[in-house]
């Protein structure tokens, strides 16, 4: 399960991720393992993903969202 699999409005907890995939800048903006992530919206052509994580509102591309594994909540 990754952020890319979430439906709008759903939440998950970010699992440990591989350092090769996730750029440092994403970490620095608050996207960290163990944090809750909520999918707020998906852009009209199914990309990018608009998420809220660790208090930050971010948009990331689907290719990145597909790489961040999560445990789904609820």
């Amino acid at each position: 399960m990754t952020i890319g699999n979430l439906k709008v409005g759903e939440c998950g907890i970010i699992e440990e991720f591989s350092l090769d995939i996730i750029p440092l800048s994403l970490l620095e903006m608050g996207c960290l393992p163990g944090k809750e992530v909520k999918l707020l919206q998906i852009a009209p052509l199914n990309d990018p993903y608009y998420i809220k994580v660790n208090g930050s509102h971010l948009a990331i591309r689907k290719e990145m969202a597909d790489q961040i594994t999560i445990t789904k909540l609820g």
């Binding site: 971010l58 948009a59 990145m64």
Partner: peptide
């Protein structure tokens, strides 16, 4: 390399 992260 996709470094696309933007703050909303």
């Amino acid at each position: 390399k996709s470094l696309f992260v933007i703050e909303m």
